[in-house]
Nucleic acid binder design. Structure first.
Length: 267
DNA sequence: GGGTGATGCTGAG
DNA sequence: TCAGCCTCACCCC
């Protein structure tokens, strides 16, 4: 349950591996995507791509299915013995190797020509996309006076960052969330981008968000860090900073809570 | 069993 | 800025 960009890229890889190339039975047990499912039923799925928090399914016959999980959306993948879908299953994709159920998405729709282009125009660079360089992100920050904590949630500035990563990336770079985006140095902006690439990749590999450096909690690997010790600041209001012991602060920024260490992220 | 909040986003005001 | 939407896991009784 962590739909930031790394999760979507992970889903895309997994579903591409399990379903692409196959003719799939497509249904909408819940009924809210019935017409779209009927249109796709029996077609061959060609590819699954992720960009930011969006998924695009390419089908033979030039159809594109667009899925956005929003806050609540969830995929369940069954390699064997799939349970029956529930009345919350918006979409089911059934192939010879696996069955994928989707529940609770904000978006599950077929795209018309031009829709995808318009959608992509609203998205900034994705740190998980191949060959993306930091310049678009750095220049975008330089044009904005909004706090960096707000800018990181703006999908037009950087696509795929969510509320956990925005707080953690700012801690890791030692940047106060309230600082105006255009007042960051280009070094700071660059290191935010590079950390986003590194951290989202790591999250995509493991399937969970672990930003804490293992040494600092007496572990040898990130995968050994117990639940509850994997993040520096997210959700830790009032608890001591893992680096300096100062109580973590919570405030609201871009209508969401953000946490930071006033000592490690000085204004 | 009910209440709540959550890793998101949009559109109305 | 804020309500609304989608679903589920978790907490407390």
């Amino acid at each position: 349950m962590m739909p930031e960009g790394h999760t979507l890229h992970r889903h895309a890889r997994r579903q591409r591996r399990l379903l692409a190339g196959e003719r799939l039975a497509v249904a909408s047990p819940q009924g809210r995507f019935a017409a779209g499912a009927a249109r796709l039923d029996g077609r061959r799925l060609l590819d699954v791509e992720a960009y930011g928090k969006h998924l695009f399914y390419r089908w033979e016959g030039d159809e594109t299915l667009h899925v956005h999980l929003g806050l609540f959306g969830k995929f369940r993948t069954h390699r064997t013995d799939p349970p029956p879908p529930t009345d919350a299953t918006r979409l089911s994709l059934s192939g010879p190797e696996a069955v994928v159920y989707l529940s609770g998405p904000t978006i599950c729709e077929l795209l018309d020509p031009g829709d995808e282009e318009r959608l992509r125009a609203r998205l900034g660079p994705d740190p998980l996309a191949n060959g993306t360089d930091p310049s678009a992100f750095v220049e975008s920050l330089a044009r904005r006076r909004i706090p960096i904590g707000a800018a990181l949630l703006d999908q037009k500035v950087i696509a795929g960052i969510g509320n956990v990563y925005r707080a953690e990336l700012l801690f890791l770079t030692g940047i106060d969330p309230a600082r105006p985006a255009n007042e960051l140095s280009s070094e700071e902006a660059g290191s935010l981008w590079h950390l986003a690439v590194t951290e989202l990749r790591a999250g995509g590999r493991s399937g969970r968000i672990v930003t804490v450096v293992p040494d600092e909690v007496g572990a040898r690997r990130r995968s050994e860090i117990p639940r509850g010790e994997r993040l520096y600041v997210y959700g830790r209001a009032g608890e001591p900073c893992r680096r300096c012991g100062t109580p973590i602060e919570q405030r609201t920024m871009a209508a969401r809570s953000i946490w930071s260490c006033p000592d490690c992220q000085p204004s």
